[in-house]
Design a protein around this nucleic acid. Structure first.
Lengths: 236, 236
DNA sequence: CGCTTAATTGAACATACTCAAAATTTGTGG
DNA sequence: CCACAAATTTTGAGTATGTTCAATTAAGCG
């Protein structure tokens, strides 16, 4: 299913402006590109699985990816999203442990695989990159700790509202500026907010009744962004 | 209240074996020690507050510290614990943001404050330290993401059991090997497990009835560790 | 067009929370 | 060391929020 495409350029030629690697020197990018492989994942395909051991990490050349973990009873919890330019699985490279979560393509995506060796080599060449990785981890940790509070202290309605805002921030809107660009199933939205499919549906329908949202099949249209923010009760 | 004591040695003389800094060279430790101040915090005193801006980070010379965040309605959530040799607030140094949480001494503790400048200097001198910091962050991130799943998918009983195990792992037991060395209030245990004081009390009393625990005032004695582990339903 | 997957609705139920009040422990000053 | 105040723990009863399970409808896809 997954095919290696010649379509994806070497790191030296990569046009991604948002990547943590964009400020590297040509030489460093060359090292990074050693043994790199670019792959195409169709919507729904798994990029890597929880509990498997890494040979490197992934960089999203273009696409949308969901990172999730499976709880004891098999229930899924979405940990975070990642999109173009972002890294996946780099933490496991450092810890030497298995991947902590499963990464799944949310839409057809191009993802590069970079070997641990190359990564370490460049880290040793460039102290600034280490600091950038530290900042990245710090930021992820902040989000995660905030998520603990959200789930433990917010109502489902607040969490659903926040999830919609997260989707908007991460993946943006269609041209009308109101329709969420990412289409997730109700189950997936529930997995992010930490609730069941049924409760998700009921809550979305309440938000529609209140005039905050419009629902057209899977499309979610944010009618009243300010009200949605108020409902979400954002803390930071 | 807080007094600067001459009791605390310079980093070059520090005997902590578990610290991330223990493998630094003498010279590097000297740099780290520049502008260092050692302070004594009584039980309950706050080491730093959420939303205040850092001038550096803290290293626990000896003691037990609780790191917590305040939710919207003022409810506290304990994010993690730290003990002798561990760092506090270093993430904010990197992000340049305010502290994300409040650190409180759980018992009389000696805590050093190390300036951001010194830290950055040593990081530049020693690439290995950067990697160690990255590993530290990776590990914290892992715990935090696991906590999200725990709170969102486990019952209160499972979470309380896990909290007791966490306390045992982090702070150990008294000489009998069964009595938890850290004495927290029921409210604090609830703040870790993400539940209310009343529910915490009721759950502890159920575990006592089941023969898993003995309760003697604040002392919590783990009667049947295996059963406690089974109740906690540990995932990783 | 048929089949699979996803979305929706309803009703019963369970878990954990809230609020109030009493009992106990802990800390502090005299 | 005792007495009193403050904080913490405990218990009870009522309640709300969200879950579960079952059944129905709609949507997406080959």
């Amino acid at each position: 299913m997954t095919k290696n495409t010649g379509d994806i350029p070497a790191c030296t030629e990569c046009g991604n402006k948002e990547s943590i690697f964009c400020c590297l020197s040509y030489n460093e990018k060359e090292v990074l590109s050693t043994n790199k492989s670019g792959n195409y994942f169709k919507k729904g395909q798994v990029i890597f699985y929880e509990n498997n051991y890494p040979h490197g990490f992934y960089c999203i050349h273009k696409g949308k990816v969901k990172i999730s973990k499976i709880g004891n009873e098999g229930k899924e919890q979405v940990v975070r999203f990642a999109t173009t330019g972002e890294l996946l699985g780099y933490r496991s490279v450092f810890s030497g442990e298995a991947y902590q979560a499963t990464a799944t393509a949310m839409e057809d995506s191009y993802v590069c695989h970079i070997s641990s060796d190359s990564f370490y080599k460049v880290l040793k060449m460039d102290n600034k990159l280490s600091l950038d990785v530290i900042k990245l981890l710090s930021s992820d940790l902040k989000s995660s700790e905030q998520k603990v509070i959200n789930i433990s202290q917010k109502s489902v309605k607040e969490r659903i509202a926040e999830t919609l805002l997260l989707m908007k921030n991460k993946f943006g809107c269609e041209d009308d500026g109101k329709t969420l660009a990412a289409t997730l199933t109700r189950t997936e939205i529930g997995d992010i907010a930490g609730t069941t499919t049924e409760t998700t549906i009921r809550t979305l329908s309440i938000l529609k009744k209140e005039g905050v949202l419009n629902l057209e099949g899977k499309k979610i249209i944010i009618n009243d962004l300010n009200q949605l923010i108020r409902v979400a009760n954002i803390m930071d």
